[in-house]
Amino acid sequence: MRILLPPSEGKSRPRRGRPWTAHELSFPELDEFRHAVHRELAAVSARADALELLGVGASLADEVAANTSLAQAPAARAAQVYTGVLYEALGATELGGTALRRLRESCIVISAAFGAVRLSDRIPAYRLSMGTALPELGRLSAAWRDVLTPVLDAECAGHLLVDCRSADYRAAWPAPKGRTVEVQVLTRAGGRTKVVTHMAKKARGELTRHLCERPAPLPKTPVALLAAASERWEAELDAPRSGTPGQLRLFV
């Protein structure tokens, strides 16, 4: 099983530690394009219109300025750098033993700055979203797609894919539909079913932790995934088909 995660917009900036280096991260085949993205990001972040180009407000000016020196910035494990609702619920830094090993092996974070990383990889904090269009590279979800596709196709071959990503990050690598189950989070109130938005991230983080912590093996089929999720939530499954990803619905 492979669990596909988005990064978080919010990040904890490491105060110390050596910078990230080429060939140190998972998927070193991506290093050349990682450097290309960082070079353009540094140039854009130094411009007077950087905030507008990166689609952020004035309160994030310091984070944008830090994009100009990612090569020298202290790095820490992605599990420590990524914060926010999903990663707080996941609580990766609290895990050990089998749960931590499973987390490191199964989780892949799709990143606008690094393409794909594992939670044990050391990265700096950065400010960049996959929906951003850089002047030379264009929209990053499209720019990354050709680079990520052969790498992740090989990494994920034969695995059940549990997709917790948002639309822009799914666009950067469209996972094989026949083996992918997307996670939806819903609530029932007053006889009506509603899609949960912000707090869906919490449930996806909790699901990831639950799958790694439970004593049974990681699910290898959509039916086994449904059974695992049903240990904690009311859950429903539409199984994937050749042209359509599956849907795991969690009711919170």
Rank of each mutant, 00 (worst) to 15 (best):
G17C: 13
E155F: 02
R122W: 00
L225Y: 00
P14F: 02
G178Y: 14
A239D: 14
V109P: 05
R47A: 14
D49N: 13
Y169W: 08
V252H: 05
G131P: 08
T193E: 14
L128F: 02
V147K: 15
M199G: 00
L30R: 09
H38M: 07
R77N: 03
G10V: 13
E9N: 11
V196C: 00
T21S: 11
N67A: 06
S12W: 05
R165F: 03
S45Y: 02
V151T: 12
G84D: 00
T83M: 09
E9I: 06
L5G: 10
S8F: 04
P19T: 04
E206N: 03
V56E: 01
E231G: 15
G10I: 06
A112Y: 03
Y82Q: 09
V44N: 00
E40T: 05
P222C: 11
P7M: 14
A71T: 13
V109E: 04
A79E: 14
P135W: 07
R16Y: 01
H23R: 14
L25S: 07
T244A: 15
K220W: 01
E40V: 12
D31E: 12
V44E: 00
S230G: 12
L148M: 09
R16E: 14
D168C: 08
E136H: 09
W173V: 11
V162R: 02
S45W: 03
A235P: 06
T208A: 15
R39I: 12
G138D: 05
V195F: 04
L86Q: 15
T83V: 13
A99M: 06
A78Y: 07
G55T: 07
P174C: 12
V56Y: 01
A228N: 03
V37D: 05
L128R: 07
V196E: 06
C164V: 08
G10K: 14
R47H: 03
E231P: 02
A66L: 01
C212F: 04
A75L: 10
A133S: 15
E24S: 15
D163K: 10
G190Q: 12
R118Y: 01
L25Q: 11
P6D: 10
V64K: 01
K220T: 15
L5S: 13
F114P: 01
S69K: 10
L128A: 10
A58D: 14
G97S: 08
G10Q: 08
E32L: 04
L119I: 12
D163S: 07
V181Q: 10
L119V: 09
L119W: 03
G84H: 00
A167H: 07
G10S: 08
A99K: 10
E63R: 13
T208L: 07
L152C: 10
R127E: 02
R204M: 13
T208M: 09
R249V: 06
A36T: 14
T193K: 09
E32W: 05
C212Y: 05
G115R: 08
S242R: 15
K11S: 11
R241L: 12
V162H: 04
W233S: 06
L248N: 05
L103Y: 00
R101V: 15
L128K: 09
P150V: 12
V56D: 02
Q247N: 08
S111I: 13
F33I: 08
A61V: 09
A66K: 00
P222K: 11
V81N: 01
W173A: 03
R139C: 11
P124H: 11
R39L: 12
A99T: 12
L207I: 14
E29L: 11
V44S: 00
R127M: 10
Q80M: 12
